[in-house]
């Protein structure tokens, strides 16, 4: 597991009541019981942990853990998406 993925898993476990073994690369946010309010909270946590800017429509309930990792990687690489 790369460090970005490990960071996301840690966040989900520490803050969002998910067990580590419940998280797969292809787990969707909704599978982890992150609803719209929780996703706003999650976006903020991602911003703080990875020092990137995440707007509210960038992580939705159907996005997977892998999607989030790609988003962070792209942002860290300076992709202005």
């Amino acid at each position: 597991m790369d460090s970005q993925t490990a960071g996301i898993v840690e966040l989900l476990v520490e803050r969002f009541g998910v067990e580590a073994d419940e998280v797969q690369d292809d787990s969707r946010m909704r599978d982890l019981d992150l609803d719209s309010l929780a996703l706003v909270e999650f976006g903020l946590a991602v911003e703080q942990q990875f020092q990137v800017k995440v707007s509210e429509d960038e992580i939705g309930p159907d996005n997977t853990v892998q999607d989030v990792v790609r988003l962070i990687d792209a942002k860290l690489a300076g992709d202005p998406r």
Binding site: R15, F16, G17, V18, E19, L32, D33, A38
Partner: peptide, 12 residues
């Protein structure tokens, strides 16, 4: 709370 209610519920 996590034990009584489950972790996914308790944090909210």
């Amino acid at each position: 709370a996590a034990r009584e209610l489950g972790k996914r519920k308790a944090w909210r």
